[in-house]
Design a binder for these strands. Sequence first.
RNA 1: GGACUCGUAGCUCAGUGGUAGAGCGCUUCAUUGACAUUGAAGAGGUCAGAGGUUCGAUACCUCUCGGGUCCACCA
Length: 805
Amino acid sequence: MDKVYNHKEIEDKIYKKWESSGSFKPETNPKGKPFTIILPPPNANAPLHFGHAMYVVEDILVRYHRMLGDASLWLPGADHAGFETQFVFEKELQKMGKSRFDYDRDTLYKMIWDFVEKNRGTMESQLKRLGFSLDWGRMKFTLDPKIVEVVYKTFKKMHDDGLVYRDLKLINYCTKDGTGFSDLEVKHTEQADPLYYMKYGPFVLATVRPETKFGDTAVAVHPEDKRYKKYIGQEIEFESLIGKIRLQVVGDEAVDPKFGTGVVKVTPAHDFTDFEIGKRHNLPMKQVIGFDGRLTDLAGKYAGLKVKEARAIVVKDLQEKGLMEKTDEKYTHAVASCYKCGRVLEPLPMEQWFVKVKPLVEPSIKALRDKKIKIVPKRFEKTMIQWFESFHDWNISRQLVWGIRIPAWKCDECGEWIVTEGKTPEKCAHCNSKKLTQDTDTFDTWFSSGQWPFATLQTTYGLPKMGFHEEVVPQVLDGKTKTYRLRDHGFKVGDKVLFVNSQSKKIFGYGIITESLETTIGEIDYKEKDHYKTYKSLEELTAAFKLRNPNDIVTEKSRAYVYSYVFHRLENELTDFEKFYPTSVMETAYDILPWWVARMVMLGIYATGKVPFETVYYHGLIRDAKGQKMSKSKGNVINPIEMVEKYSADAVRMALVFGAAAGNDQSLAEEKIRGMRNFTNKLWNIARFIEMNRDKNYESRIMNYAELGEFVKNENDKKMIDRVGELIGDTTRHIEKFELNLAAEGLYEFVWHQFADKYIEDFKNRIDENSFTILKSLFLIQLELLHPFMPFITEEVFGKFTGNM
RNA sequence: GGACUCGUAGCUCAGUGGUAGAGCGCUUCAUUGACAUUGAAGAGGUCAGAGGUUCGAUACCUCUCGGGUCCACCA
């Protein structure tokens, strides 16, 4: 053994071994109790950051449960991240001097698809570098056709149930990015703007947005305001910049008599409060700002100006006409801006699809209160309930190309909407017209990711009653090596596969995936008939596969392909959904709580009648050593993979859980990772010490914990056995209570300072075979306890001692 | 306006109703046989402050001061 633990040579080898032995599949423990975690799907287009590395918590839990013998599934996926990705892509376009307007919808979509496709592999390989034991065969993407089907189905059901409706409302709209948002995506920032006091006939009123005055359809005062009470119900007429204007005066509670002059201009098309006032008093809407961020024709001579320009000019003109009484320059207020590009958002009237939230919220809150969903740390339970209580109806329409297009069609004749589960309707359900136009909008990304826990599980492997997948045409059979990694593509014991040479179109093999393929190795020589059961005749095969003509499906040339027809599992076997839903744990950063976790709870309960997960574990955010948020602009981003390369995956993993209580942010310094690297080296050298003594021809026995009690002779050994017993108990208890930090700290302290510093030193003075066997066995137990946290080195060392490599 | 959270060793943070812990850093010494990515010994904290509950509080409660985060409103 080398003097120093060299992770570089070991990690890749070990990961491949895990993968090819199928140990990440829940089928490893087919009879075990299901334990499931769905990986929060990272953005398919972006490289990982340290926040993603925190998913190590999930790996620890999954590995722990796998070791307990549970049927443990950790399902990977990727998110198309609609707006985020389109935003990044548009930046790329910009670099090339292009914009989204240069392409039609289909071309743009295809371009983004290719763009994402190019980057998709990065994420996967990075997750592997961290040692994450994800079942890659079950990998899902939010735009997979089957996932989309599920999303459509949910949408349709919600529509039928009256939980989805189309309405004209004010939407926070980014005129640069060309899309509207939900409340959550709006960023409020404090800002100082001049407050203008303008003359409106008999009134003076204060506003920060004089340019919207052309959209005014009333003037409002508080109904009890003595100063203005007499005007309520009357109409005022006065000279404005674009001619005479008549406005009615309404009394409304929303007006604060203490603000400004106590008089408000009402612009229902461009202000949320005014919109509400407008509704209460039946005021018309006049849209004076267009979706391009410029004033519309209603603004007369100001039409075509951008909002900012218009404001300056309007102010100037008002001053010149003597219509401006005064200006308060230092007025500060919160402005809604686009969380991505920072531009001030315009409230604009738009027809959109909305989710009626209230009926979804109530069962969600109940689930939390009834402890159907347990929250770790506990304090976030309150936060979640608050969120549920404050949700407004959720705008799920986005004016984006990159996403799942909304399966709704508008009848050109009668104007009614038809919602389907994805299929283009033949005719209008109301007037039978065949002229239908599909909504051009796509779903808010969170509408699909909110269905992730059940959508993934409903689409892994066969769904009940679905016959066979027609589109499952997995991957290339490498023509040269004649090997094929079946396990990577979702094959499972019992799946029927068909091997076709696409050049000759000749079927050269067909059969059923058997146990040996599934559990021994991932790479098989397709010629080895042992790995699949063959059919005697083509007729038998065709019948078994319900094929009409197998050759029909051969499309690619020059390489051999494997075509699979994945049937419904053997009759009595449960589907993934039946077996693994509700999932056990949802683990994610707390900052995503309202966007994602809350939505998953609402949609999960609605669509399946069950909570989507039993426990939510929130981890904190990773900051730099000085406690600042990591961000590209600050230049303080640490790349997790760089750290893995430098210090080993085990060290990075350990650094992330060590001293980090659930839900608390942590500052991550490189020194901490280095410290944990030193710990891996300590483990390595304990192993070396044992190895050294093994050379003395001591019998290489390994005893399990229960055997040691009878075997032990020396008092010190006996004490150590007891203490390891306590360690087992403590570690287990901590993991069960999601106190991974305590488990990690306890193990670190024990292994290094109790076991190595004291016990081994003591052992050196009294080396004998009996004690050696105990020492070695105890060390292996500690390795097992550490394995979920530091899988690579523990696997390597364990393998060395047990010959199990 | 509301909610949450933090204030513990020089730094970053765990933790507990019973006279304080870790990592890194620091000091002194040691070391060629598991490991300098090491070992031994040590310095360093009235656990923000005040009050209360308690036999006993860093921990529970209240308030104050000082950080941070989120939400709501803003004409």
